[in-house]
């Protein structure tokens, strides 16, 4: 099944074109990597899919449903059922690890006992079982990464959007976490949209690589 469809999408910032007529289809279960130099529009694509911004022209659909078109958003982010790991992680500094993960579960109205169970499971999954009560500032970079993953995965999203999630880590940790993400993906089978500027990383993570340059997809 097609999870995400972008149809002739263009996006402008203050009159400057950031995306130029981009069309892209993402199939269920695939690991697609969007590869390109800084400033080419990778983050913009993720933000369009997530629903933080609307395409100026063109249309976007998710799981067959039209979610935005020509400057208008029909389905807000919280009703798209997507997960995202941000480039700077965006862990909420005032909430504990548990609080960070619980926020989305609460918003979905999941009862307390079930929330507890899900938090425990997902923390086990990412190897952070003992850290539920820590604040993000009390974790190392790699640990924060795992929490961000857990926060995104706990809601079992249709697709996981990842914006250069490992770019702030040193190479060794970067490579180790690539393996872990792959292991999780294999186990859970979620669709993955992974953004990076690093060719090696792209080759490691992808079942399909899409190259971008200056707001266009290169063929």
């Amino acid at each position: 099944m097609k999870i995400v469809g972008m149809d002739a999408v263009s996006k402008f910032y203050n009159g400057e074109r950031a995306l130029d007529n981009v069309s892209l289809e993402i199939e269920e279960g695939e690991r697609i990597v969007i590869l390109g130099p800084s400033g080419c529009g990778k983050t913009t694509i993720l933000r369009l899919i997530a629903g933080f911004i609307a395409p100026d022209t063109g249309a976007i659909s998710i799981a067959g449903e039209l979610v935005s078109r020509d400057g208008r958003i029909f389905t807000p982010p919280e009703r798209r059922n997507l997960g995202m790991v941000f480039q700077d992680l965006a862990l909420w500094p005032h909430l504990s690890v548990k609080g960070n993960i619980e926020f989305g579960l609460k918003a979905r109205g999941i009862p307390r006992e079930e929330r507890k169970r899900k938090i425990r499971e997902v923390l086990d999954l990412v190897g952070m079982a003992g850290y539920a009560d820590r604040k993000p500032a009390e974790l190392s970079g790699g640990q924060q990464q795992r929490v961000a993953l857990a926060r995104a995965l706990v809601l079992e999203p249709r697709a996981l959007l990842m914006d250069e999630p490992l770019s702030s880590l040193d190479l060794e940790l970067n490579i180790r976490l690539r393996k872990e993400i792959l292991r999780l993906q294999e186990k859970l089978g979620f669709t993955m949209v992974y953004v990076t500027h690093d060719r090696d990383e792209a080759a490691d993570m992808a079942t399909r690589v899409v190259s971008m340059k200056q707001g266009r997809i290169e063929v």
Binding site: P76, F86, G104, A107
Partner: peptide, 26 residues
């Protein structure tokens, strides 16, 4: 406030929830 913090909340909750649990505490 880093806009990403609110967007991370918007992925899973409406503005009401984001304001209450994220923006206002910050």
């Amino acid at each position: 406030i880093n806009p990403r913090l609110e967007e991370a909340g918007r992925l899973v909750a409406g503005w009401r929830g984001v304001m209450k649990e994220i923006t206002i505490p910050l």
